[in-house]
Amino acid sequence: MRYGLLVKGAPYSSQASHSALRFAAALVARGHRLKCVFFYHDGVYNAARLAAPPQDEPHLYDAWRSLHDEHGTQLQVCIAAALRRALLDSREAERHGKSGHSVEPPFELTGLGQLIDLGREVDRLVTFAP
């Protein structure tokens, strides 16, 4: 089956990201296709490129990246939720006159319309919320 995930919990603050990543690993291990992970609400913090967790803890940011690299899963971030929370890619940083950016590929800032499209395209959209 084709799956999409909706992640609404911030990394390390709640179980949402950890559970979503485990679910993602189980999906692909069983031969399902994970098309996209969409980050909304505080879930957008998963896209913060500067995350530096202690070495003996799961590196959630790197885990999302691996999901993209190994399985082609798209990592989409709601732009309206992201900009409010200081998550800007280089284009948005320039547009808003900020000196640095906090989001980079494979994470993409995108609109909520993409979430609605995802819901239409996949067989199952599963939410992970705090």
Binding site: H41, G111, L112, G113, I116
Partner: peptide, 30 residues
């Protein structure tokens, strides 16, 4: 699409973000 709203206004952004998702879906013809 069914959007279930379980949070009050003001205390958190849940309600606003849920309504935003509903409006976008409607704008997309759903």
């Amino acid at each position: 699409l069914l959007v279930i709203l379980r949070h009050a206004p003001h205390g958190s952004s849940w309600l606003r973000e849920g309504l935003d998702a509903a409006l976008v879906a409607a704008a997309f013809g759903q």
